[in-house]
Each structure stands twice: as structure tokens, then as C-alpha cells.
């Protein structure tokens, strides 16, 4: 697919001055991109070239640049976090593209995650879901119980751990044709519901988190499965089924 030759690319990037402005896709030619650079480094190079020309650099989210923080976003060539399985945008490398390619770079889109500027979206609606129940009320005042004193079946521990790898990036929402946050929410629910510490508050947790998700204006899941495919952490649809179970039995018990 790629050689070691530097690449020239045509980028179509969403530019938007602020939350209230109307944005548009703007064409940029970027030159001399190493196939070994990451996608975000490519944007850094573009921004340097823009600054040199006296233009405003493109604003985009990033932090750890090693796939753990969930801060990077971007909808690249029609896919959240671009092509490639189970990677974040910061883990995407330019060798996945070819010299002369045109690359569309858009912000994650959801009514509940509005654009703040250029490629940066406001994901605080996800934080609100988390705050509505994504925690356990355990005492950490110095007399906490030894974790190994609580026997947990290995399968449950593994499933809880897998769910806990969700980095809260929002790619599932961005990908879903309904802008549904169910994969994210279900990962947060499962991570606790499977463990004894989380079971105590399980019913209220799932009800409150779903309520806030609905209030924030996320869409309804229609089981297309797109989220699972695009999730950089491979969060399974099993979590959504589990969340549905938890939610339905919790709300029946009301």
C-alpha cells in the first residue's frame, strides 16, 4: 500500500469559527508527509504550514497520543477514528493512506455533542451520563477492604475489565446513525454491574444514566452494530444487551 516516499495530500477539513457560526469544508494541500507519521502529526505539520502562511491553524482535540485518554476524535474519510480496527485517531498512521489521496476530516457529529470550534466538539453530555451513576459509593477513608477478600468469578472479572477499557471517546456516538450513546453507557453500566461492589447501586445507576442520556438528546439504538465495529477498544454489543436487561428489570421493579 505505501512506500517510504513522503506524501502530498488534499485535505478537506471542517472549519467553524465557533459554536454559533456556520461551518464549511475547506481544502488544504499538505506536502512532505512521512508515511511513518501519525495522523495527528500530519495535522501538526499542516498547522505549521498554515502558521507560516499567516493563517489560523486547525483546532483539534488530543492529549495522550497513545490511545488511552479518549481525547482525540475526528471522523476521517467517513469513519470515526478513520480506517483501521480498534485504534484511536492518534494511533492511526499515514501509511494507511496513499500519496495523492483526498482525506475528509470532520468533527464527531451529534446534536448532543455540538461543535465548539473546527474539529473540537463538546462531549460534556457524556460526562453528565457518567456523573449520573458511573461510580460506586465506597468508602476510601483508609480502612478499605482487601480486594482479594471478595471472590469474583474470572469470567465476570474479565467482562467487567473489558467494559472498563472504554475511554469515553464518543466514537460510538459519532458512528451511530442515530447518534445513540448506548455502547458508551452500557460499558459504564457493565463495568460496575458485574462486580459485587457495583451491584449495590446497579438498579439506580442504570435508570439514572439512561434518563440523563435521553435528556441530553442522544438517539435510540437500532442495533446496527456500527458502534462495536468502530469502537477503538472493541467494546462488545453484549454490554448493550446486558444494559437493556438491567434497565428493564430495574424499571419493572419501580
Amino acid at each position: 500500500m505505501s512506500s517510504n516516499k513522503d506524501m502530498d495530500l488534499l485535505l478537506k477539513i471542517w472549519r467553524q469559527a465557533d459554536a454559533n457560526s456556520k461551518g464549511e469544508l475547506v481544502d488544504y494541500n499538505v506536502t512532505g508527509i512521512s508515511p511513518d507519521s501519525s495522523f495527528l502529526e500530519m495535522l501538526d505539520v499542516l498547522n505549521e504550514q498554515l502558521v507560516e502562511k499567516g493563517q489560523e491553524p486547525v483546532v483539534f482535540d488530543h492529549d495522550c497520543r497513545e490511545g488511552i485518554c479518549g481525547m482525540c476524535s475526528l471522523f476521517i474519510n467517513g469513519e470515526a477514528h478513520g480506517p483501521g480496527d480498534q485504534i484511536t485517531t492518534c494511533q492511526l498512521h499515514m501509511r494507511s493512506f496513499n500519496d495523492g489521496d483526498t482525506i475528509y476530516i470532520e468533527p464527531f457529529r451529534a446534536t448532543a455533542m455540538p461543535v465548539i470550534k473546527d474539529l473540537v466538539v463538546d462531549r460534556s453530555s457524556m460526562d453528565k451520563i457518567q456523573q449520573a451513576g458511573g461510580y460506586v459509593s465506597v468508602n476510601t477513608s483508609g480502612n478499605t477492604q482487601d480486594a482479594n477478600a471478595l471472590p469474583i468469578p474470572k469470567a465476570d472479572a474479565d467482562a467487567a475489565f473489558d467494559a472498563a477499557t472504554c475511554i469515553g471517546c464518543g466514537a460510538c456516538i459519532a458512528t451511530c446513525k442515530n447518534a445513540s450513546a448506548m455502547l458508551f453507557l452500557s460499558a459504564k453500566v457493565s463495568q460496575f454491574a458485574l462486580l459485587p461492589q457495583g451491584k449495590v447501586e446497579a438498579a439506580d445507576r442504570v435508570k439514572n444514566m439512561v434518563r440523563v442520556m435521553d435528556e441530553e438528546g442522544f438517539g435510540n439504538c437500532t442495533n446496527t452494530g456500527a458502534c462495536e465495529v468502530e469502537c477503538p477498544k472493541g467494546i462488545s454489543l453484549d454490554n448493550i444487551a446486558r444494559m437493556n436487561r438491567e434497565y428493564l428489570s430495574a424499571s419493572l421493579a419501580d
Binding site: E106, R109, V115
Partner: peptide, 8 residues
């Protein structure tokens, strides 16, 4: 839930 869509 997605008032602004994607170009691509």
C-alpha cells in the same frame, strides 16, 4: 439526534 450530518 444528529441535526448536522457528515459530508462523507
Amino acid at each position: 439526534a444528529r441535526s448536522v450530518g457528515y459530508a462523507y
